Computed example of a mutant assay.
Amino acid sequence: MKSSITKLQLKLKPWALAYSIFMVTLGCLVYAAGVNSFVIPNHFGNGGVAGIAIILKYIKDIPTGTTNLIINSFILLIGYRFLEKRTLIFTIYAMFVTSWALNTIFPPVFISDNRLISAMAGGVIMGIGLGLILKGHGSSAGTDIIAMILKKYLGINFATGTFLLNMSIVLASGFVIGAENTIVTIFMKFLTSAALEFVTDGFSRRKAMLIVTKEPEQVCQMITETVNRGITVFRAYGYYTHKEREVLYIVVSKPQVMKIERRIASIDPNAFVTVSDVQEVIGQGFTFYNPNNKNRRFYDE
């Protein structure tokens, strides 16, 4: 295992390694702060291994970091094969940093008369922490690895497996934290997921436009002049009209959609346009910035 880690580290550029370490470390600290400042003081539960650790903290006063380290270490020993090497390394690192932070980082507690406010703040902060860990190519291990095992051997969808495992832990904690706090915890988990999703891909989301028009050349020229995005042209056949058409495909930012739609309408009022969400875009003009490109002003629109 040591040789594999060494080979991987040699493949990583220093800036990439520093970036991952920084993001994972920051994410672990933020997550631990959310747990110790909002979750435990308000007697909420949580999902995953952290949820089990928190329940044991309530029952036996066992430090959450200690439980988190022991359970996650056991799960990693069983399921390390399900993680790519880079993710495995930073997952192990995240496990140790999170466990240390849970036992060491104790920001001022936040207890509100309205439990939902505490849950909202805690959920968002934990989601940001987990999102930063993922951005650094780490993972929270725990239930994620178990969900991968369930997918391989039982055919359960990963998202479904993760949801079932987390909800099982949250619902089981109801016997300790009570029904009301269990409901609030479920609400908090949804906010955690939303914040995590926003951190991991909220800024890179784009819109995909599929355009069927009688004036493909004019539309392509307009798009090039307006937003300077690459256009993919497909040869298509209309079943109803029995005619061949050119279908245009382009990925743009949200503000650019309305601008393009208006100009398409002025060129071809009968054009057929569909707009759909794109989870992530990787490529020139989106993730690869070329400072020498004379059209770089379009990149940030």
Rank of each mutant, 00 (worst) to 15 (best):
M1K: 10
T6V: 14
L10G: 05
K11I: 04
P14W: 08
W15C: 09
W15N: 14
A16H: 15
A16P: 06
L26S: 08
G27H: 06
V30H: 06
I59K: 01
D61T: 05
F74A: 15
L76E: 02
L76D: 03
E84D: 14
T87E: 11
T87I: 10
T98R: 05
D113A: 12
R115C: 01
S118V: 08
A119W: 02
A121R: 10
G123T: 03
I128N: 06
G129A: 12
K135Q: 14
T143A: 12
N157V: 03
G161E: 03
T162D: 01
T162R: 02
L164K: 12
M167R: 01
F175C: 08
I183Q: 06
I183W: 05
T192R: 00
T192A: 12
S193C: 07
T200W: 04
F203G: 00
S204T: 13
R205M: 14
A208F: 10
T213G: 04
I223A: 02
R229T: 02
I231M: 07
A236W: 02
A236Q: 05
Y240M: 06
R245A: 09
L248D: 01
K254F: 11
Q256D: 03
R263D: 02
D268V: 03
F288Q: 15
F288K: 15
N293T: 05
N293F: 05
